[in-house]
Computed example of a mutant assay.
Amino acid sequence: MNIELSDIITIVGTMGGVEGVKWAIRAWINRKNDARIEDARADVEEFKALREYNEFLQKQLSDKEERFVEQTGRLRQVQDELFTLKESFSDVKLELALKRCEKKRCGDREPQNGY
């Protein structure tokens, strides 16, 4: 038994003696606290990555919204031009209807339009 005790004392002595034992006891007592600190650090890193990804997605969304507004503006401009052309086309059709002769291949135009 003395041999075993001397071996233990030698090992403890090489580890730093009493200070090594104190350190080992503190490490064993604080293992839960250290694990909690490591979990908190991992959470911070994860939140940082999620925040960066969220900022990236927000930038993409704002870019797409800008393109959507631009395309909507172009669409409205083209629609306004189309409505203007349809209106002028309707005016031309109405004028043609007023000046068209009701009798086919006639010498006397009805209605008289001055031509």
Score class of each variant (00 low, 15 high):
L75G: 08
R100V: 12
E81D: 09
K64N: 10
L85S: 08
D91Y: 15
E38P: 11
K104T: 04
Q79G: 14
E4P: 02
I8N: 03
G17R: 01
C101V: 06
F83A: 03
W23N: 11
I11W: 10
G20M: 00
Q77E: 08
I29E: 07
R109W: 05
G107W: 08
L50C: 05
G73Y: 14
K22F: 02
Q58I: 04
D34I: 10
E66S: 04
I25H: 08
F83S: 00
G16T: 04
D108S: 05
N2E: 01
V92Y: 15
D63V: 11
R100T: 15
A40Q: 12
E102D: 07
A49C: 06
S6Y: 00
V44F: 07
N30A: 10
K32R: 02
G73I: 01
R74W: 10
E87I: 03
E70F: 07
F47P: 03
K32D: 09
D7Q: 12
V44Q: 02
E38F: 12
I3R: 04
Q77Y: 11
E87N: 15
G13R: 04
K48T: 00
M1R: 02
E81V: 13
Q60F: 05
M1W: 02
L61S: 08
V21K: 00
D80Q: 13
A24M: 04
K99S: 11
D43H: 05
A42Q: 14
K86Y: 00
K93F: 15
S6I: 02
T10F: 03
Q112T: 08
I25Q: 14
E19L: 03
D39V: 04
T72R: 13
N30Q: 06
I29W: 13
C101E: 02
R41N: 09
D80K: 06
K104D: 08
T84L: 06
G107F: 12
N54V: 05
D34Y: 06
N54T: 01
L85I: 03
E102Y: 15
R51W: 12
D91W: 13
Q60H: 06
C101K: 05
D43N: 12
I25K: 11
R31F: 10
R26E: 09
V44R: 04
M1N: 03
G73T: 03
T14S: 11
E65C: 03
Q60T: 01
L50Y: 10
T10K: 14
T84P: 03
L75K: 07
E102Q: 09
M15G: 05
G20Y: 01
V92M: 11
Q58Y: 02
I37M: 09
I25A: 09
L5G: 02
W28H: 15
A97I: 00
M1V: 01
A35N: 08
L82T: 13
W23T: 11
L5F: 01
N30K: 08
K99D: 08
E52N: 10
Y115L: 06
N2P: 00
Y115C: 05
R109S: 03
V69G: 09
E65I: 06
G13W: 00
D63S: 15
K86Q: 02
L82N: 06
